[in-house]
């Protein structure tokens, strides 16, 4: 596929994803806005894929590898930390526990 054709498809995907993002996010209740923020935080950790691609490419020279390595470290911290902390928060959102039911 020509470079320009690929670019147009990528732009189309970008625009559709932005609209989808607004649509999906507007349905999240304010109750969950903090987990939403940390959850989307984890998702942009997907930049780890880019970091792996540059750190691991076979034609990479020393400098590319070093920069790529640091990028992998940062992105991994982003991904792992983001998902773990979001899970910790969401775990706490519970309905009423049985033991504290009203006596009446």
């Amino acid at each position: 596929m020509s470079h320009n054709a690929t670019l147009v498809i990528e732009l189309t995907i970008l625009v559709l994803a932005v609209f989808l993002g607004f649509e999906v996010i507007s349905k999240v209740p304010t109750l969950l806005h903090t987990p939403l923020m940390s959850g989307t935080n984890a998702i942009h950790g997907i930049v780890i894929v880019g970091a792996m691609l540059v750190a691991g490419m076979d034609e990479a020279d020393g400098l590319t590898r070093v920069v790529g390595f640091v990028a992998v470290v940062l992105a991994s911290a982003n991904v792992v930390g983001g998902f773990v902390v979001t899970d910790r928060m969401l775990e706490m959102f519970k309905k009423r526990e049985p033991r504290e039911r009203n006596p009446d």
């Binding site: 995907i13 994803a17 989808l20 993002g21 935080n41 998702i43 880019g50």
Partner: peptide
């Protein structure tokens, strides 16, 4: 996958 995820997060951050 980078384009879509980035766009989703961009939309979410903007909306918030």
């Amino acid at each position: 996958v980078l384009i879509v995820s980035g766009a989703l997060v961009g939309a979410s951050g903007t909306l918030l």
